Computed example of a mutant assay.
Amino acid sequence: MASRKSPTARQRRLGSELRKLRERTGLSLTEAAAALGTDRTTVSNSEAGRFGVSAARVRAWAGHYACPDAAYVEALADMAEERTNGWWEDYRGDLVAGALDLAELEHHAVAIRSVQIMYMPGLLQKEEYARAVYAEVVPPLTPERLRRQLSHRLRRRDVLDKDGAPSCVFLVHEAALRMTFGGPGVALGQLGHLLDESERDNVAVRVIPFAAGGFPEIGSSTQYVHGPVPQLDTVQTDTATGPAFIDAETRLTNYRAVLDRVESRSLDPKRSRDFIRGVAQSMKA
């Protein structure tokens, strides 16, 4: 069985879920290998995402581990059957691995809920706005790196148009609406684009006004990405070195509670559109 040079986040996630299945049974690697009729190295490398596993093997291992959740097992089997490279692989070597992992995560999402404090949601950014945001990067991007970053950012938006597109709720703070990246003209164009995108059937934009007060634990852009079953949900947060991903069960539970609280303090979609129009009018004054 050939070893992968660089497993993707999705491949690593499948491996980690296989590890969780084993650990819930109380089996060591050696005990699991004996029960599965294989060797300890194969089990270990499969759990690390270094070895690929087939859907049939996932089902067989889950059966040996006596997993009672059929929907969860089938979701893992579907992950194992994924063999094609997505468009994001065109950027491997040019961008940080986390950027590719984020695009892959969004592509397979059932639903997405995000909180944006200082920036417009990445999936709803116009090219001019994205270019202005990247212009603030330190150290500055080279022209070629900027071109590739922009290309990747804009291709991510295609997920909203694909068959089976995820249902998205974007919670956007008033601060992000009033930041004038690129100047008033670019900012106004972005607000107009945000309004247009909010009319999509699968998109809801909800504004968090300054008047809503504080809320817990959201200091940076955060996306909660729903998988086909709750066990496969993922939280993505922005860091100085790129996207970070969280899938520990307790932390997922906490993030869901935080996002529920933030959403409860946001305006509904209709009032949010009116609010965005008001911000745009104040920029024109």
Rank of each mutant, 00 (worst) to 15 (best):
D196I: 13
P209F: 13
L188V: 10
A212E: 08
V205W: 14
G189D: 12
A211Q: 07
H193F: 06
G189H: 06
F215Y: 14
S198E: 00
A175G: 04
F215T: 02
E217H: 04
F210W: 12
C168R: 11
G182L: 03
L177V: 08
V172I: 07
V207D: 08
L194P: 00
P166C: 13
P216Q: 03
L191W: 14
E199N: 04
R206F: 04
H173N: 07
P166G: 13
G183C: 04
P209T: 06
A176Q: 01
P209I: 03
Q190Y: 11
D196W: 05
G219A: 03
G214W: 04
S198H: 09
A212P: 01
S198G: 02
M179R: 15
P166N: 12
P216D: 05
G182K: 01
A212V: 10
A204D: 10
E197Y: 10
A204T: 07
C168E: 10
T180K: 11
M179T: 15
E174I: 03
L191C: 09
V205M: 06
I208D: 08
G192K: 08
V172N: 02
L188Y: 14
L171E: 04
A187K: 15
L194Y: 02
R178T: 08
E217P: 00
V203Q: 10
G185Y: 15
P209L: 08
L191D: 09
G189M: 10
P184K: 06
V207M: 07
L195Q: 13
G182A: 07
A212F: 14
E199G: 10
G185A: 15
D201E: 15
G192Y: 01
T180G: 12
G164C: 12
V203C: 12
A187M: 15
F170H: 14
R200S: 07
H193G: 09
A165D: 04
G213S: 10
G219T: 03
G189R: 05
L188M: 14
R178W: 12
L171G: 02
G182V: 03
L171A: 06
L171C: 15
R178E: 10
A176N: 01
G183D: 06
P184C: 01
V207C: 00
C168P: 07
H173A: 07
R178L: 11
N202W: 01
A165C: 08
E217C: 04
F210L: 12
A204I: 02
P216F: 02
G189W: 07
F215W: 11
A165M: 07
V203D: 14
A204G: 11
A212H: 13
L191E: 08
E174P: 05
L194A: 03
A204H: 06
V172K: 00
G213Y: 13
V169I: 05
Q190H: 12
A175I: 09
C168I: 05
